[in-house]
């Protein structure tokens, strides 16, 4: 069972690599942020797995919670920042959709 958990961690880590491609190549900035966000959530899972391997789960759970929290704040902040940079886009998504039709 111990081995199985370690293998699961390795599998998750290996699956992060294709997402890394999106971070490097992603055509827009938001693509990259999304990929970082996905990797961040998985890192929280990975932290708990590391805790299980070292048999100190009660300690690593705190790290995982903090990591998930900072990941959330990071993506909200990035979304908010990208929204504000261009002043010509002060209208909302709804209005834009209507003006197009």
């Amino acid at each position: 069972m111990e081995n199985f958990i370690a293998y699961a961690g390795v599998a998750i880590l290996a699956l992060m690599l294709p997402i890394m491609y999106r971070i490097i190549a992603g055509p827009t900035a938001i693509d990259r942020i999304v990929a970082v966000n996905v990797i961040g959530t998985k890192t929280a899972v990975l932290l708990i797995i590391i805790g299980m391997i070292f048999e100190r789960v009660e300690m690593f759970v705190d790290f995982a919670l903090t990591y998930a929290l900072l990941n959330f704040i990071g993506s909200i902040a990035a979304a908010r920042f990208l929204n504000r940079v261009n002043p010509t886009k002060s209208f909302t998504a709804m209005e834009a959709e209507e003006s197009k039709e």
Partner: peptide
């Protein structure tokens, strides 16, 4: 939040 940011972008 991210998809909305992308849409308005």
């Amino acid at each position: 939040a991210l998809i909305k940011a992308g849409f308005e972008e």
